[in-house]
Simulated assay, not measured.
Amino acid sequence: MTRRRTSSSRASRHLPAPSRSQGGGRLRIIGGEFRRRLLPVLDSPGLRPTPDRVRETLFNWLALDTPGACVLDLFAGTGALGLEALSRGAASATFVERDPRIAEALGANLEALGATLRGRVQVADALAFLTAPPADSPFTLAFLDPPFRQGLAEPCCLALEQGWLTDEAYVYLETESELTVAVPTSWQLHR
């Protein structure tokens, strides 16, 4: 198994498609330091938290690579993936969310977890964020969950190649099942 700019995608049908959170608007952290914590989730059109089962499977795959990771959670929404990474020992997480109301709720959840020193929320469009030069050290783990059917997956994957990732970074990409994404040729499918 090689790890250079590895990607995973729901399009590969290894994981079930996400569904809207049923009843309650709560996000449960699956494992790690914040295990079993329930966090409020705003009811907002298009906001689809990554389901528990998907996160559990994903972080089982990433178990050895999450501790100490520098995480980028693009199209953060609820921040489910980045928060789970922080809970499992990631050194830092940058959450990029364009909706100020959703970003504010995510910031409140970071405060509730006592994770504001390791997590920061950027209110920005994900693609615009990636067109600026990287300000921090490169990310070792990136989560991309763009809104479906808006053509954002490919341009974001290409933009990540502009200094945003370490050479052996993992990239997890959630897409609609019918979409085939052309990722950079240096990336290798891991799962």
Rank of each mutant, 00 (worst) to 15 (best):
G107A: 15
I102M: 11
L72M: 11
R120D: 13
A93Q: 06
A124T: 11
L83I: 13
A90G: 03
G89F: 01
A103G: 12
S92T: 13
A85M: 00
E104S: 15
T78H: 01
L74Q: 04
L86H: 03
R120I: 03
D99M: 05
F75L: 05
L81F: 04
R118A: 15
R118S: 15
D99K: 09
R98L: 11
T116P: 05
L86I: 08
R98F: 12
T94W: 12
L81S: 04
R101Q: 15
C70G: 07
A115E: 14
L83P: 00
A93K: 04
I102C: 10
E97Y: 06
P100V: 11
R88W: 02
N109P: 08
I102D: 06
L117P: 07
A115H: 04
T78C: 04
L72P: 07
Q122I: 15
N109A: 11
A115W: 05
L127Q: 13
L86G: 04
G107I: 09
F95Y: 12
L106W: 05
N109W: 04
G119N: 11
E111R: 14
G107E: 13
A93S: 13
D73E: 07
F95L: 09
D125E: 12
V121T: 13
R120A: 13
T94E: 12
E104I: 01
S87C: 01
L110Q: 07
G114R: 10
L113E: 10
T116M: 14
A124E: 14
A76K: 04
Q122F: 03
G77I: 01
D99R: 13
C70I: 11
D125I: 11
E97L: 06
G82P: 05
L106Q: 09
P100I: 07
G119I: 08
A76R: 05
R118I: 03
L83R: 00
L127T: 06
V71Y: 04
G107M: 09
D125F: 08
A76I: 08
D73L: 04
L72G: 07
L83T: 00
E111A: 15
A115V: 06
T116R: 15
E111N: 10
L83M: 12
L86C: 07
A80Y: 03
A76L: 10
L81Y: 01
G77F: 00
V121C: 13
P100Q: 13
V121Y: 11
L74M: 09
A115R: 02
E84F: 00
A115Q: 11
A103H: 08
I102P: 04
S87F: 01
A80R: 02
L113I: 06
D73W: 02
N109F: 05
L127F: 13
A105G: 12
A91R: 14
A112Q: 13
R98I: 13
E97S: 08
L86N: 03
D125Q: 06
R118P: 03
V123W: 01
L127D: 06
L106G: 11
L86V: 07
D73I: 02
E84G: 00
A128M: 10
A76G: 14
G114W: 08
L83G: 00
G82Y: 07
F75A: 04
A105T: 10
V71L: 06
E104D: 14
L110D: 06
A103S: 11
A90T: 03
S92K: 09
E84N: 04
G77W: 00
L72S: 08
R98V: 14
F95E: 08
A112V: 05
A115D: 08
T116K: 14
D99Y: 02
L74F: 09
